[in-house]
Amino acid sequence: MHYNLRHYRAEAERHSHADFHQIIISDVGKLELEVEGRAGEVCGRRMAFVEAGRSHAFRAEGLNRFLVLDVNIDLAHKTGIEALWQSRGRASAYLELQNGAQGSLLGLLDRRWFRSDASEFTGDGMPFTNAIGDPGLVDQIRLILGHSRQAVGTEKKTGSDIPTRLVRVMDWAETRLTEDIAISDMARIAAQSESTLFAAFQRYLGTSPMRWLTAKRLQMAWFLLQDCQIQLSIGDLANAVGFSDQSAFSRAFSRQFGRTPITVRRDARKLLGAKL
């Protein structure tokens, strides 16, 4: 398995690859993608799975960067990645990550698995990082697919009552839950003042930007603890969802859900054992 960060040109290109599937996840920008005549976009929560042998065309304008994983056919079959995609996508090339599920997932793949000195490539440049046989990376891919659903149409839904600017900053923040995010950063993405952004969160979501961000991080932690295939210590899990201190994470988690992280993980494993 190979994985890398790529940015694409505005000029459309087309090709196919016979020996591996490709998973494309957006970090920045929008990729226009056409797979065997089916047009779609990779942006925000929308990702794509390009099956081996399928001809596909792609282009992206402006600032863009995408996480691209080349998954060997045999590995995808043996680890259930192929089956998970088929069950979620129902033959579609496009999946949409559910609310609260995408934040730290992209962070875990994008930030934790790449060398800090790695260069990026334009178009389909050679991968700079190789993760052949890495079970941790396979776990993260399975988790991403497990919290996804078939994407309908090519237009990103923003909801009927939440302004587009607010949706944009929410999507941006949810893909960076592992990073330090300040209100000033969120205001910059929304192209609003901090006070205007704060007022928008209060009006449409009934909370402050930072409380919303913390809730998203804790929700992602719940997903990770419930998935018995994810082998992360509580400390590593805390870091994965943006908490630098394990004790602070445990206190916040307990306040949010009325249960400790260790209890949630233990109960999930007991339930799995009972089913087996």
Score class of each variant (00 low, 15 high):
187 A>T: 06
221 A>S: 05
198 F>R: 15
194 E>C: 08
213 L>C: 02
152 V>I: 14
167 V>N: 07
208 S>Q: 15
152 V>S: 10
205 L>V: 04
174 E>I: 00
198 F>G: 12
197 L>C: 04
146 G>D: 02
215 A>H: 13
213 L>S: 00
159 G>M: 03
214 T>D: 14
185 D>Y: 05
199 A>E: 11
215 A>F: 07
163 P>I: 02
204 Y>A: 05
159 G>H: 04
141 I>C: 07
170 M>H: 05
146 G>Y: 00
239 N>E: 11
168 R>C: 13
197 L>E: 02
170 M>L: 12
195 S>T: 14
198 F>S: 15
206 G>D: 10
217 R>N: 04
148 S>I: 00
163 P>R: 02
172 W>Q: 08
200 A>I: 03
177 L>R: 02
223 F>L: 15
182 A>I: 05
230 I>S: 00
154 T>W: 09
185 D>R: 06
210 M>R: 15
147 H>P: 00
229 Q>C: 04
213 L>K: 00
167 V>W: 04
143 L>G: 00
165 R>T: 08
209 P>Y: 06
152 V>L: 13
229 Q>H: 12
197 L>N: 04
201 F>C: 05
179 E>G: 02
153 G>M: 12
198 F>P: 03
207 T>I: 13
237 L>M: 11
216 K>E: 10
145 L>R: 01
229 Q>D: 15
179 E>K: 10
198 F>D: 15
224 L>V: 04
201 F>D: 01
228 C>N: 13
156 K>A: 14
218 L>P: 01
167 V>M: 13
183 I>M: 12
199 A>V: 08
164 T>L: 12
168 R>E: 15
228 C>D: 14
153 G>T: 10
158 T>I: 09
170 M>A: 10
232 L>Q: 10
188 R>P: 01
232 L>M: 13
183 I>T: 12
141 I>E: 01
184 S>M: 08
168 R>A: 14
170 M>P: 04
154 T>I: 11
187 A>S: 08
227 D>G: 00
184 S>E: 12
217 R>V: 02
192 Q>I: 06
195 S>D: 13
159 G>E: 01
158 T>G: 08
153 G>W: 10
208 S>V: 09
218 L>R: 02
146 G>P: 02
151 A>G: 06
225 L>M: 09
180 D>S: 09
206 G>F: 09
163 P>Y: 05
207 T>L: 12
195 S>R: 14
212 W>T: 05
197 L>S: 03
177 L>F: 03
185 D>W: 07
193 S>D: 10
148 S>T: 11
232 L>E: 06
143 L>F: 03
164 T>C: 06
146 G>E: 01
193 S>A: 09
216 K>M: 09
203 R>I: 05
231 Q>E: 15
234 I>R: 08
152 V>E: 13
229 Q>L: 07
220 M>Y: 03
202 Q>F: 09
204 Y>P: 02
231 Q>P: 03
155 E>T: 14
144 I>C: 08
